[in-house]
Design a protein around this nucleic acid. Structure first.
Length: 452
RNA sequence: GGCGGCGUGGCCGAGUGGUUGAGGCAAGGGCCUGCAAAGCCCUGUACCCGGGUUCGAUUCCCGGCGCCGCCUCCA
């Protein structure tokens, strides 16, 4: 039985599915107004891992993640840069997809765009107005949270203790500071759509409701996102569905921050690294491994030191994978006990740190077996290791790097010299290879070089 | 002000009412190697502070201190 933390109850509880064997997940995607940073990278990895693990576990998963392509920040960027909102959104959506692809994150089964859902949102807002839980003002349509029983569940705090204006100025148009915009009436020069309340655009909290109910249906299984989305964003989604009498997410899953020197990575603090920059200098698999080594709800330090650490750890795994190929390790069924331990760890609220500890234990044991020439002993361990890392989306190296002619020549020179016991020439060739950035290893079949 | 979380070896990061603190990185010693690399073995007197509960607390409770996050559109 898979157990997951549920923000709505604040506990780890069994995942109770709407339909046996099938999991429907909705994960809040990006607002495409700027480049993604490491925090975005973490959340896509966390939910990619959850998705892959569920599939490994035999569930049929439907994964939906939206693209918010109309929003205040997109508008202000477009105005500042003198181009259209659509152009800005398109540009950053492309950047987003490239970065996520580079991370080895699978694309969602559906990636609905806000602009394509305006009609459905207008319809939904109309129902809320008709139900008398929403009201129209001079600048928009708002949902009155007083009309929603149990509002504040995901805030995990009594409503009357929420401090209005703690972070954002209170809007004087609203009846209650907690009310939120369903529809924003257009100001001059802003993109807009027609509605019964005049031209405007939808508020952020409505798109996910319309999309999730449309693509996954009522009472879908998992709704996920970064921890800061729990309140108010997810709460406000929930409120809309509730007000319409429609069942919403059964399970709320939120991941922890990427932090830098203990502080949340964010644009406002200016302490962020873009995903693209990270991937230019760090193996994307190392970032995945770094994310996997911490529990998904814990804060995670991402610094040059921790990414280098993960890179070195990953190299250990790649080395074994390469070694297994070299010795022609048989493709056998994976060690059953190892798989059982993996499953037990992951079933316990996605305990990827324990799973990674297991991976490194298998790595060591397989190396020990190979050192002893015990191929039969190593094979099931390597098979289990491969299956486990694959289940969390980590591909291991194992192939050879392509060598250019000059490198080939140095390798040949070293092998000849070693064959003749000419250590000085052999060492000189090695020094040259190392200087060119190769790791040089002697094997029974001769010199092998590889990149770090 | 309210609510929530955290404080573990040089670093990252798990975990537990009790003889031996996951795992990784880094560091030191060793084996292997022509020398290396890779791999393996060994090496770490940790749990913010003060009370309390307990035979026994890093782990539970209370109180501090420090840090972090959320409190209306931030992953």
């Amino acid at each position: 039985m898979l157990r997951l933390h549920d923000t709505a109850t604040g506990t780890v509880r069994p995942l109770e599915l709407r339909e046996p064997g099938k999991v429907s997940m909705y994960v809040c995607g990006p607002t495409v107004y700027d480049v993604p940073h490491l925090g975005h990278g973490r959340f896509v990895l966390v939910f990619d891992v959850l998705r892959r693990y569920l599939e490994w576990r035999g569930y049929e998963v439907r994964y939906v993640s939206n693209i918010t392509d109309v929003d205040d920040k997109i508008i202000s960027r477009a105005q500042a840069e003198g181009r259209s909102e659509a152009e800005v959104a398109r540009e950053y959506e492309t950047v987003w997809n490239e970065a996520v692809d580079a991370l080895g994150v699978r694309r969602p089964d559906a990636d609905p765009h806000a602009t394509a859902y305006v009609g459905r949102m207008v319809e939904l807002i109309g129902q809320l107005v008709a139900a008398d839980v929403a009201y129209s003002t001079g600048d928009g349509v708002y949902l009155g949270v007083d009309h929603v029983d149990g509002y504040g569940l995901l805030a995990r705090q009594p409503l009357d203790t929420l401090r209005s204006g703690a972070r954002v100025d209170v809007d004087e148009h609203k009846r209650s500071p907690l009310d939120f915009a369903l529809w924003k009436k257009a100001k001059a020069g802003e993109p807009s759509w027609d509605s019964p309340w005049g031209p405007g655009r939808p508020g952020w909290h409505t798109e996910c409701v319309a999309m999730a109910l449309d693509l996954l249906g009522e009472g879908f299984d998992i709704h996920g996102g970064g921890a800061d989305l729990a309140f108010p964003h997810h709460e406000n989604e929930r409120a809309q569905a509730l007000a319409l009498g429609r069942a919403f997410a059964r399970h709320w899953v939120h991941n922890g921050w990427v932090v830098v020197e203990g502080e949340k990575m964010s644009k406002s603090l200016g302490n962020f690294t873009s995903l693209t920059d990270l991937l230019a200098r760090v193996d994307s698999r190392a970032y995945r491994l770094l994310v996997l080594r911490a529990h998904y709800r814990s804060p995670l330090e991402v610094t040059p030191a921790t990414t280098a650490d993960a890179t070195a750890a990953l190299e250990r795994l790649d080395n074994l994978a390469r070694r297994a190929v070299e010795v022609g390790l048989a493709d056998v069924s994976p060690d059953a006990e190892a798989l059982a331990r993996f499953r037990a760890a992951m079933d316990d609220d996605l305990d990827t740190p324990a799973a990674m500890a297991l991976v490194f234990e298998l790595n060591r044991r397989a190396n020990v077996a190979l050192d002893a020439g015990d191929l039969e002993g190593a094979a099931p361990l390597v098979a289990a290791l491969r299956e486990v890392v694959q289940a969390v989306g980590l591909a291991l190296g194992g192939g050879d790097d392509d060598l250019d002619a000059a490198t080939e020549a140095l390798v040949t020179r070293r092998d000849r010299a070693r064959g003749g016991g000419d250590w000085a020439t052999a060492d000189a060739a090695r020094d040259e290879l190392v200087a060119k950035g190769w790791v040089v290893e002697d094997t029974p079949t001769g010199t092998r070089v590889r990149r770090h």
